[in-house]
C-alpha cells in the first residue's frame, strides 16, 4: 500500500507546484517542464528535481524556495529536498502541449 500512497502524494505535490509561475513566461513551472522529477518516499519525504530556463537567473532562488514551500503545504509531507539541476538543460520542447502556443509561432 505504501508505494501507492507515495505515488498519490507525489501527484499531490506535482499539483501543488502548479501555483508557482515562471515570472518571464507567466505559466506554472510544471506545465513549462521545469520540474524534472517528483518522488515521495516513506509517505512523508518529497524529493524534487528541477531546473530554470536560464542558468544564473536572479529569480532562481525565489522559484526554488516557492517550489519547496508549495511541496511543504501538501498534507503529510514532512521533509522536502529540492535539487536544482542544469543537466539536461531546459528547452522549450519540454513545454506541455496544452500551452505550446505560449511562445508564439
Amino acid at each position: 500500500m505504501s508505494r501507492a500512497e507515495d505515488e498519490d502524494l507525489a501527484g499531490q505535490v506535482r499539483e501543488a507546484l502548479k501555483l508557482v509561475i515562471d515570472p518571464e513566461l507567466g505559466q506554472n513551472v510544471v506545465d513549462l517542464g521545469m520540474i524534472y522529477n517528483v518522488s515521495v518516499t516513506d509517505r512523508c519525504v518529497a524529493t524534487i528535481s528541477m531546473t530554470t530556463t536560464t542558468r544564473g537567473c536572479p529569480a532562481t532562488g525565489f522559484i526554488r524556495q516557492a517550489v519547496e514551500d508549495r511541496a511543504w503545504s501538501v498534507e503529510g509531507i514532512e521533509f522536502v529536498d529540492v535539487q536544482l539541476t542544469y543537466d539536461p538543460p531546459w528547452s522549450p520542447a519540454r513545454i506541455a502541449p496544452e500551452i505550446a502556443g505560449l511562445l508564439g509561432r
Binding site: 501555483l19 508557482v20 509561475i21 515570472p23 518571464e24 513566461l25 507567466g26 525565489f62 522559484i63 524556495q65 516557492a66 517550489v67 514551500d69 508549495r70
Partner: peptide
Amino acid sequence: LGKRQTPRVQ
C-alpha cells in the same frame, strides 16, 4: 512567489 497570485514581469 507560490504563496499568492503574482503578476508576470510582462
